[in-house]
């Protein structure tokens, strides 16, 4: 009897181990962010909030943080404006060159980031856009589109078109059908796609290092520079804040709520829906 129980628990145990394997190395930055040491040291010799104070008062950290949020938000909006119509066209229409278009959209995902970075460096440099926020947004949009396009296509393929027919026969024209039925039904997929687009930009380091320059430097670039120069434990603070932000986001979006939409949104974050 107990043997059977033990065998039943092996998958759970394995899952916990894998989770720890993935999570522990990341978690190590948390104690280090509260450290009193002048550089990375584990375990920390003492604890203080000093580096948090440093982060929140140092403009060389705050400016890249602001840049990151600006670039990521703009990237998210632009990406959605471009990839939503693209996904609709790709999933619903049959046209010449459909497969080629799909391949082209997926290209930024296949090309090594360094190659893309180099290409952007040459291309945007000629246009005088290196070191500017619009230049960063352009580069990040092209990297984010394939990610959100993939998510949107998967969502759209699972969409039951009879819902739109039902709306139309109920008296809704194409516009009202789209905004009252199609969009709300696809909401969870849209939210996921936007989030991926945001993160594709927010987490991106290679292109940022190549083209963002001093003025448009983003957080990942600043962190990379910082660890090369002085191994400043402020990086640990930034990392901890990022981990905290992501965890908060996931917890909030998985919280069961009365409204059905938020529930389906949470489901789609955890895995494919029904």
């Amino acid at each position: 009897m107990s043997e059977v129980r033990l065998r039943d628990r092996i998958p759970t145990l394995a899952a916990i181990l894998v989770a720890l394997f993935l999570f522990l190395p990341i978690l190590i930055v948390v104690p280090m962010s509260f450290s009193t040491a002048v550089s990375f040291q584990f375990p920390p010799p003492g604890y203080s909030m000093g580096y948090y104070r440093a982060y929140f008062s140092d403009p060389t950290w705050l400016a890249p943080t602001a840049n990151s949020f600006i670039v990521a938000t703009a990237t998210m909006v632009l990406t959605m404006l471009l990839s939503v119509p693209a996904a609709f066209a790709y999933v619903r229409k049959r046209f010449v060159g459909r497969t080629a278009v799909n391949l082209l959209i997926m290209l930024p995902l296949i090309v090594p980031p360094v190659v893309s970075a180099l290409a952007f460096y040459g291309y945007l440099g000629r246009a005088g856009l290196t070191g500017t926020l619009p230049g960063m947004v352009m580069a990040h949009v092209s990297l984010a589109i394939p990610v959100s396009f993939l998510v949107l296509c998967a969502t759209l393929k699972g969409f039951d078109r009879n819902l739109e027919r039902a709306a139309m026969i109920s008296g809704a024209g194409p516009v009202r059908t789209f905004f009252l039925v199609t969009m709300p039904t696809l909401r969870s997929g849209m939210v996921t796609a936007s989030m991926f687009a945001f993160l594709a930009s927010f987490n991106e380091a290679v292109v940022a290092i190549f083209i963002s320059g001093r003025d448009a430097g983003t957080l990942p670039r600043k962190m990379f520079e910082s660890i090369q120069l002085d191994a400043d434990p402020v990086i640990a603070v930034v990392s901890t804040l990022l981990i905290g932000g992501v965890l908060l986001g996931v917890v909030v979006s998985s919280m069961p709520r009365r409204r059905s939409q938020s529930r389906t949104a949470a489901v789609s974050l955890r895995g494919p829906g029904p």
């Binding site: 039951d160 009879n162 819902l163 027919r165 039902a166 709306a167 039925v181 709300p184 039904t185 909401r187 059905s260 939409q261 389906t264």
Partner: peptide, 9 residues
Amino acid sequence: FQNYALFPH
């Protein structure tokens, strides 16, 4: 419709 096509939201 056969598959009901109720608006899920």
